[in-house]
Amino acid sequence: METTKKTILVVDDDKSILRTFTRILQKSGYDVDVAETGKEAIEKAETRSYDLALVDIRLPDMDGTDLLNKMQKTMHDTVKIMITGFPSLETGLKALDEGADAYLVKPVKPDELITLIEEKLKCREENAGNSKL
């Protein structure tokens, strides 16, 4: 069993979400970093790599899907899960199109989120062996 903790970046402009998600994810054994804006997220991604990013679709400085687009360059291998408070078929499709691995609607049930994160990370590891993309 790998002892190094998986890293997760949570991007959301809502501080209480950042705070609670951090605690939930930490409880589940993840190393959690947070960013309140798109700019901050990009900067953080430049200094270190993340296994997974949890991104709110609506950010104060940019659209979540734009951020996703920019992250594709620096965070190529990062699992990207989009979370939205304004669900619509169109934004969901667009997010997946921009390279998101999952699309969730707030409020996400924490245990479901944890299950999904585990699944996606496992998937990523399996794929890492193959040179598939």
Partner: peptide
């Protein structure tokens, strides 16, 4: 939805 997420 944001506060709901925080409450949840």
């Amino acid at each position: 939805r944001n506060p709901l997420q925080a409450i949840t």
